[in-house]
Structure formats: structure tokens, C-alpha cells
């Protein structure tokens, strides 16, 4: 409130900061929580990339059974305290199979983050192409694409993914399949945003001026529109990413997503469902990891949104209103 009133009523407060990347970074850094989140995300990505290395340091791999570490009398509860945590098995072992939990967690990060990332990229690509085409195309193109978008909105990701998993042959690699399905179903939000922004931008005078300069449509789209679309698209993509992680985890949790022996956090949770009384760490570790990852990405998304928000940006950049500047 304070800020808005000030800037609206007093052109004085609207000191223009340096433009472009440097001010973006400054604003991003100003949000400490966003920085912490970015560090967490970076760590998680690093863990995922270095999974074989980390498992190698521990001296384990994610798929070897250790029957000697679980108690066959109780149906496979890990021996030892806290789910069998020891110097060899840093996070203990999986109930029933005795597979090393640490190795499965770090390899699971690969799957969870990788699938979500691939799905997000697909969503962004389809969304931007469809949204741009609808925003720039003529009435007919816009109508047709908007209807298609409406249909896609009506497809609940979970339900469609479940349905699709039912008909695709079992030997098709699951991570790829999930990424493709989620990508194909979840792009409507981005395309709607891109279309709306394109329409708004198209009516701006500097685009009209570019037309009068004699440029063709493609060049105008590239020079005048695309740069202005980057901010909302990036913002939305960062917010989509955690959602995609949850979808993958949910599918795997339901037992129709990533299949063992490939590890994924959601699938570990699903197994843990039956073991939580005997081996609580087996449940808590993947639950905590999903929580931290999604939280970090959400906070980061907030930070990026704040740093890139066109309203914030334009307010900081330009202190004049549309109508006659009447303020003292």
C-alpha cells in the first residue's frame, strides 16, 4: 500500500534504477529467502548429477539386495536402529530387500528432478508456441487455438496420466513416458499467459511504430515481443516445476509411475506406506525430500516472480501514468 500510494502520488519516489540484468539480480538478491531456496535447489541438482559419484563414495549402489541386513522373521524389517543406519549404509536400508537407501535417494533425485524438468521444458515449448500463434494469428487461428487450449485445460493431468499409463506398453521407459504425458497435458497455463501478454503487447505503441518502420511480422515478434515475454514465461515455468515433481511423485506413489528397480521418491513413499510403523525413516526421508524440493522451488519461483514482475519492473522503471501526469 505504502509503496503504491507513494509512487502513484509522487513522481519523486520513482527513482529509476539501472536497467536490465544488474537490477534484476539486485532485486533477486534482496529476497534472502529466494537466495536460500536457490542454494537448496542447486544442491539438489548437484546431488542428482553426482548420484553415481556419491553412491560410489558411500560404496553402495541402488539395486543390490542385502538380505543379510533385514530380519526375515519380521517380514523384512531392517536390522539395527533407525532403519539400519550404519557406516556402510548412511541412511539405512530398504525394508524387505535391504537395498541401500542413500544410493536410492540420490538416484531417486535424478529421476524426480529429471522427469519434472523434461516435463516443464515440454510444457514451456508447447505453451509458448501455441500462445504466440494464438496471439499473433488472425481471428480464426486464435479461435481455434484457444478452443484447443480450453480442451487441454479440461484434461486433469493426474487422470490423463493414469489413463495413458494404462494403454502404453509396459516396456516403454516410464520416466520418459511420464515426462511426455505431463508435458503434453500441462501446457495450457503457459499458452494462456503468452497469448494474453502477446495481445497486450501487440497493442502497445512501440509495436505499432515498428510496423510503421516497415518491418515484417517475424522481425517484430522477435525484436519487440519475445524479449517482453521472457519474464512471465520464466516466472510461470519456475512455478510449474514443483507441480510437476508432485505429479510424478503422486503417480509413483499410486504405483503406476516409476517402477522398481528404478528409484523415485514418490515410489519409495508408496512402499513405505506399509512399513512406517516398523521403519519410520524409510517413510520420512523421501517425504522430507519431496517437501524440501517443492518448497525450495516454490520459494525460488516467488523470488523470480518478484524480481521479474512486469508491474514491479515497470513501476520502478517509469514513474509516469498513462493520462496526464498530475501530481506534486
Amino acid at each position: 500500500m505504502a509503496e503504491a500510494l507513494l509512487v502513484k502520488e509522487a513522481g519523486v519516489a520513482a527513482a529509476a534504477p539501472a536497467s536490465g540484468a544488474s537490477s534484476f539480480r539486485r532485486r533477486l538478491r534482496a529476497r534472502r529467502s529466494a537466495v536460500v531456496a536457490a542454494v537448496v535447489v542447486a544442491l539438489l541438482v548437484l546431488v542428482a548429477l553426482a548420484a553415481p559419484l556419491l553412491a560410489g563414495i558411500e560404496g553402495q549402489d541402488p539395486t543390490t539386495y542385502h538380505a543379510n541386513l533385514v530380519d526375515s522373521a519380521t517380514g523384512g524389517v531392517p536390522l539395527g536402529s533407525f532403519g539400519g543406519i550404519s557406516a556402510e549404509h548412511w541412511l539405512g536400508v530398504e525394508p524387505l530387500t535391504g537395498r541401500d537407501l542413500f544410493a536410492r535417494v540420490v538416484y531417486g533425485a535424478r529421476v524426480s528432478l529429471g522427469v519434472a524438468l523434461a516435463a516443464t521444458l515440454l510444457q514451456v515449448i508447447i505453451g509458448v508456441v501455441v500462445g504466440l500463434a494464438a496471439g499473433l494469428g488472425n481471428r480464426f487461428v486464435d479461435q481455434a487455438l484457444s478452443r484447443v487450449t480450453d480442451i487441454v485445460v479440461a484434461l486433469p493431468v493426474m487422470v490423463i496420466a493414469l489413463g495413458a499409463l494404462a494403454v502404453v506398453p509396459a516396456d516403454f521407459p516410464r520416466p520418459v513416458l511420464i515426462a511426455v504425458i505431463v508435458g503434453l497435458v500441462g501446457w495450457s497455463g503457459i499458452s494462456k499467459i503468452v497469448r494474453a501478454r502477446t495481445l497486450a503487447l501487440k497493442s502497445l505503441d512501440h509495436v505499432a511504430a515498428a510496423r510503421l518502420s516497415g518491418w515484417g511480422g517475424l522481425r517484430i515478434a522477435r525484436r519487440e515481443l519475445l524479449p517482453a515475454l521472457a519474464a512471465p514465461v520464466i516466472t510461470y515455468a519456475v512455478l510449474l516445476f514443483p507441480g510437476n515433481i508432485v505429479v510424478e511423485a503422486a503417480l509413483s506413489f499410486l504405483g503406476v509411475g516409476i517402477k522398481p528397480p528404478t528409484p523415485s521418491w514418490g515410489q519409495m513413499l508408496s512402499d513405505a506406506d506399509t512399513w512406517y510403523q516398523a521403519a519410520p525413516t524409510y517413510l520420512l526421508i523421501p517425504a522430507l525430500l519431496i517437501f524440501i524440493t517443492v518448497l525450495a522451488l516454490t520459494v525460488l519461483g516467488e523470488g523470480v516472480r518478484n524480481a521479474l514482475d512486469p508491474r514491479v519492473a515497470s513501476r520502478l522503471r517509469i514513474g509516469t501514468g498513462r493520462k496526464k501526469e498530475a501530481g506534486g
Binding site: A209, G214, A228
Partner: peptide
């Protein structure tokens, strides 16, 4: 196109905020 030009009302919206003013003016020449 180039023979019929326009000067717009809104000095904010009529220039692309992401390009230097020189580049904007150079547009018709390019």
C-alpha cells in the same frame, strides 16, 4: 510504410523499454 509516420500519445508505451533510444530511432533506417 515509411512515408506515412506517426507520433504517439503515450511517451511510455511508444518506445520499447528494452532497446536503447538510438536503436529505436534507427529502426526505419535498418
Amino acid at each position: 510504410r515509411r512515408e506515412l509516420q506517426m507520433v504517439f500519445q503515450d511517451p511510455v508505451a511508444s518506445l520499447n523499454p528494452r532497446r536503447s533510444i538510438g536503436e529505436s530511432v534507427a529502426d526505419p533506417l535498418r
